[in-house]
Amino acid sequence: MSQMLIEAAEAPERIALQRDKNRDARRAAAQRIRTLDPPFAITIARGSSDHAASFAKYLFETRLRIPVLSQAPSLATLFEATSPKLSGTLAIAISQSGRSPDLIETAAAASAAGALVVALVNDETSPLAQQADILLPLHAGEEKSVAATKSYIASLVAIADLVAELQSDDRLERALDELAPVLKRAWDADWSAALEPLARIERLLVLGRGSTLPIAAEAALKFKEVAQLQGEAFSSAEVAHGPMALVRDGDPVFAFAPSDAAREGFADRLAALKDRGATILCTGSEESAVPLPVARSSDPAVDAIAMIQSFYRFVEALARTRGLDPDKPPHLSKVTRTR
């Protein structure tokens, strides 16, 4: 078994631990954010953590009505142009290691401008964790694999838990209470029928929308990182604005169908791609050329979290099918030190 597979399989027990240990901290964080009543929020993240930040944007904007923008770290590190208008806003920093210099500097600059900094970090001793106003540890345990898996899922769950606390959303709270067994079902979902169609290709489109767009972005990264396959993620609403022109007969499109209000338009886009001759590989939709079962919950956001758990097992198997070692992606390291 690869280290990636071992760590991804730990996600159900790790998120159960996180939710239990963070209960008091989560409530205290929600109270401070309510008191602040921020006009908008910024996110500070890179890589898989930035995809988790996109999930935060989706939940904050659709359920809390708080606008969210992604803060480019170079504003602080290269251009020294952090806006003074961040005073009284919320800054959400997400990192597995908490040691990337650009994230640390960006969070420090936001704090100096008067933002309330909330850090979602796996390493509680890291510089990013120590400088935050509010710390919500991920409790994912040590992650040795270069490809982040359980820490990404832990980030999604920490975000969803915070939103549920801020919104007093009983439905989301109930779905999160049931998440550990849902993730176990997701892990057992059989996506092996999609291995052969992707075993010898070099590129594909990856689609999502709403709650599943951050999942599609994470999947596209893992296609590159683990399977050395050029996956590019798009919203199904955006793919017709150019990328659809690249689709040729037989080309694969890997899709994560949302189960919220975005579902109807998503199905229409898949049908259009299918009419162009694309081979649709989709979880959560009948348009799929092969069955990719989804572990359902009582909330669309939790459905999306379950999808990436199934995908992690699949992409690890795909890497091995393509003759690759999923634990040794070329030219990459666990902690990326960018500025």
Results as ranks from 00 to 15, higher is better:
Met1Tyr: 08
Gln3Pro: 02
Ile6Met: 07
Pro12His: 02
Glu13Asn: 12
Arg19His: 12
Arg34Cys: 06
Ile42Val: 15
Leu59Tyr: 04
Val68Thr: 04
Glu80Gln: 14
Gln96Tyr: 14
Ser100Asn: 07
Pro101Val: 09
Asp102Gln: 06
Leu103Ile: 13
Ala107Tyr: 12
Ala108Asp: 09
Ala109Tyr: 06
Ala112His: 12
Gly114Asp: 10
Val117Asp: 05
Val121Ala: 12
Asn122Gln: 14
Glu124Ser: 14
Ala132Leu: 09
Leu138Pro: 12
Ala147His: 03
Thr149Val: 03
Thr149Phe: 00
Lys150Asn: 06
Ser151Arg: 05
Ala154Gly: 14
Leu156Glu: 05
Val157Leu: 12
Ala158Asn: 10
Ser168His: 12
Ser168Ala: 11
Ser168Leu: 07
Ser168Gln: 14
Ala180Pro: 05
Ala186Asp: 09
Asp190Cys: 07
Ala193Thr: 06
Leu205Phe: 06
Leu205Tyr: 06
Leu207Thr: 02
Leu207Ile: 06
Arg209Pro: 00
Gly210Ser: 13
Ala217His: 11
Lys224Leu: 10
Ala227Cys: 06
Phe234Cys: 02
Val239Asp: 01
Ala245Pro: 08
Asp249Thr: 13
Gly250Cys: 07
Pro252His: 09
Pro252Gly: 12
Ala255Pro: 07
Phe266Arg: 01
Cys282Lys: 00
Ser298Gln: 13
Ala301Thr: 10
Val302Cys: 09
Asp303Gln: 03
Met307Asn: 07
Ile308Trp: 02
Phe311Gln: 08
Arg313Tyr: 05
Thr321Tyr: 07
Thr321Ser: 10
Pro326Tyr: 03
Pro326Asn: 01
Pro326Glu: 01
Arg337Trp: 04
Arg339Phe: 14
